[in-house]
Design a protein around this nucleic acid. Structure first.
Lengths: 153, 153
DNA sequence: TGACTCATGTCAGAAGTCTGACATACGGTT
DNA sequence: AACCGTATGTCAGACTTCTGACATGAGTCA
């Protein structure tokens, strides 16, 4: 019991959560004046870079369930930010597109979010940023391996 | 429009969210069989390492609002995992303590979470882990600076 | 062709978290 | 002492996200 708990001050997991929480809070702060949430923005940004993504693909990209993304997409469609075909051309997949209004709304949000990212990286050199990316990728990779397979049986 | 959006594949912010999401999912997977959520566990772990924390302090430590933590604490108190004095000795602060039952429940959870953290760090050397900690701390520091002060006016 | 598996879109209900608001208590200032 | 800004605990309502469930369609295999 010398090391009974996970030392929160040193734990990479805790620091990861702290950093992610700080980033989310900062994004919320700059997106709120634009009437946009983080998931809302993530969805639009994904559609901007990869037009035609389906509901499920957007959900995976924004790290929410497809049910949650569905709720959001219906609201975005209702408000005219995105469009989806009424019927699927193949299977059940409904490719989503950004409307001009959605694109316009995204512009300001992207600028705001970029300012946050710039601030976040302000104290790091290019090399450190590259190292950070590699490290985060490594973490994702490690966690994906045998993900829950021991528990899910 | 050559760099109109934030390239999600390269963005440190996106990778940070992805890593944090993967960590959370992995933690949820191992905590679910124990009937425990991540916030639930965080609260207990915080109390184990720093007995007597108040509701607001626990909220900050678990990265939720004090209202959310209050809801959780009431449930934990009702179920006998923690105790709080009925009246504050000084101010309104109610120092929270882990009960034996809470401590016992935490033991299994800590082991489960530690296995996740071990898996997360499996591909990294000690030096890389230290570098990761430093980098995450740097990010938190940068984001805290002038946090929302431009927007909150 | 038929059965099976997998992925998708969607609905409904439950759970967690958030914002807004209020009363209370401390600390420093006047 | 009186005031003011800050922090805390708490209640209430709303929002977001989740889990559970169902039907549909593609792909595989016998």
């Amino acid at each position: 019991m010398s090391q009974d708990g996970i030392d929160l001050e040193t734990s990479v997991g805790y620091l990861l959560k702290e950093a992610s929480s700080a980033l989310r809070a900062a994004m919320e702060a700059v997106l709120r004046p634009l009437g946009m949430t983080v998931t809302h923005y993530s969805c639009l940004e994904l559609l901007s870079q990869r037009p035609g993504l389906s509901n499920s693909e957007l959900a995976r990209g924004a790290f929410v369930t497809r049910q949650s993304m569905n709720v959001l997409l219906q609201a975005l469609e209702r408000d005219g930010y995105v469009t989806r075909p009424v019927e699927a051309r193949v299977g059940k997949v409904l490719p989503t597109q950004l409307t001009p209004r959605g694109r316009h709304s995204l512009e300001k949000a992207t600028a705001a979010v970029r300012s946050v990212e710039v601030r976040m990286l302000s104290g790091m050199t290019r090399e450190e940023q590259a190292a950070a990316s590699g490290m985060l990728r490594s973490i994702v990779q490690s966690l994906r391996t045998t993900e829950g397979s021991e528990q899910q049986g």
